[in-house]
């Protein structure tokens, strides 16, 4: 991970752009070049921003770059089109299964005091 490779991911990270299979319609996030189900070619696909929490966990074993604040929640989110993604939750003290969430843009980490600030999708309760 570098300040350059982070940049290459920005569109998918900022906007929940996934992929959809041209053959069978299977959707994925992050996007795939070839469908995992049928091997067909895929196209970029804008996933819906809203969904619900299916499962969640409070990560206490914090990895480098994500360890400057508190433990945070990670969740399996089922988006409104049925696509399941894994993401960080924010602005929530105690999530619940079924909780309605929406994708938003938040800071993920920085490359130190003088380095780049990296932003990406997180999910928070619907306003």
């Amino acid at each position: 991970m570098t300040e350059v490779s982070d940049w290459r991911f920005r569109r998918y990270r900022y906007r929940l752009i996934g992929s959809r299979c041209r053959e069978c319609g299977e959707t994925s996030y992050p996007p795939r070049r070839r469908c995992s189900r049928c091997g067909g070619a895929t196209e970029e696909y804008q996933l819906p921003r809203r969904g619900r929490v299916v499962h969640y966990t409070l990560l206490k074993a914090l990895p480098t770059r994500y360890n400057h604040y508190r433990p945070y929640f990670l969740a399996v989110v089922e988006l409104s089109d049925g696509t399941r993604v894994i993401g960080m939750l924010t602005d929530v003290d105690e999530p619940s299964e079924g909780m309605e969430v929406e994708a938003t843009l938040r800071k993920l980490y920085t490359y130190g005091e003088d380095g780049k600030i990296i932003y990406g999708v997180k999910f928070r309760p619907v306003l």
């Binding site: 400057h68 508190r70 924010t90 938003t104 938040r106 800071k107 600030i117």
Partner: peptide, 16 residues
């Protein structure tokens, strides 16, 4: 702001 918010994320939320 929460630890993961700044002017850019607030501007994004408002604009969205």
């Amino acid at each position: 702001p929460s630890y993961d918010e700044d002017t850019i994320t607030i501007a994004y939320e408002a604009a969205l």
